[in-house]
Design a protein around this nucleic acid. Sequence first.
DNA 1: AACGTAACACTAACGGTTAGTGTTTAAGAA
DNA 2: TTCTTAAACACTAACCGTTAGTGTTACGTT
Lengths: 197, 197
Amino acid sequence: MTVPPGRRERKKAATRQKIAGTALRLFLERGYDAVGIRDVAAEADVAVTTVFSHFASKEALVFEQDAGFEQRLTQAVAHRGPHEPLLPALRREIHALVRHCTADSAAPLWRMIGESAALRQYEESMRLRHAQSLATAIAAGLGLAQPTTACRTIARFVIDAYSLAREAADPQAAVDEIFSMIEAAWAVARPCTESSR
Amino acid sequence: MTVPPGRRERKKAATRQKIAGTALRLFLERGYDAVGIRDVAAEADVAVTTVFSHFASKEALVFEQDAGFEQRLTQAVAHRGPHEPLLPALRREIHALVRHCTADSAAPLWRMIGESAALRQYEESMRLRHAQSLATAIAAGLGLAQPTTACRTIARFVIDAYSLAREAADPQAAVDEIFSMIEAAWAVARPCTESSR
DNA sequence: AACGTAACACTAACGGTTAGTGTTTAAGAA
DNA sequence: TTCTTAAACACTAACCGTTAGTGTTACGTT
């Protein structure tokens, strides 16, 4: 990522990029369901098996960059200021993520995702994985080895905020509204004392 | 459902029941992924296309009876006492549902579901649909034609409670813990006045 | 220069799902 | 009763995502 380490890895990254780019272009041109894996492979001039050696599934071609989503959330928890409370940090991050995917430039992509049942379902289970990672990160921030039910619950609620805000009329306002609810829930849940430990 | 209306519909229901029963038995015997639709069809002595005319997908064979889940939740909201508050009614229903599916007799089924990625993913998106129905029911109970963001949020949280409690060490206690968090969130969300309108 | 390995290609298949095309059977009209 | 119609069911054949098996190149390393 920082320095090109070798021709081999550069070629691999180039192939991956070519496949993802071709796929996204075809999907947006003709519709996700109307484009087959064999079409993508032919257009990118690779074999079908090569597509699946770079991407675990057809849906993964669309959510290629969303590996960063999980990282941004867990790092928002782990790398926050030493005395900054948990939820404002998460609220800021969710705000940014919602703004990012409700931007005009992202509109065609998200319209396509909303129109395909397979893509919606894939995104949902992606979010669940994110919620689990976030729960672990929250627990770690509280000095816990295993996430408690309260940690898991708050993590789910935060991920819900992202999903719900995106489909609201005013996404930014919705983030604030939902987070005020999460704040109240969190205040009830935690014992309020052992936040350092 | 109340009275058998005709031979034709009885036969149809019998075929459906035979397919679902056969499928569930084979799945539990040999494992979900090890049993193909063609196996189910052969064992139930019907054609493959007949299976798909009764069930939308292979996964739907497993969640056959969970059409009642959605109904139980929305009716818990709609048919509650005239002055009974919303969340205690939902809490009671979630308690019952969690108890139902953590019973010993249901253990093999839910172990199978947990072991198959396809089934877990299917259940997740089923729950999302339930959350949408619940949001509509909650809004209707408040005299709203369209669910607000707060309604949708509470509905999601309630569904989350069901999912999270099931995987907790003490499911019944987890329901209570999560619902105390939801109560706090709901208290913040609603304007507190126009509950009749 | 030779070797080991990772990326890639090709074929063939598997399993879920659907389209197309009948065939039976029961419900309701004549 | 008989006729009509529509629904349930069967069968074939295919489509599509995905994977296993088996090479073949081309890079990094020694």
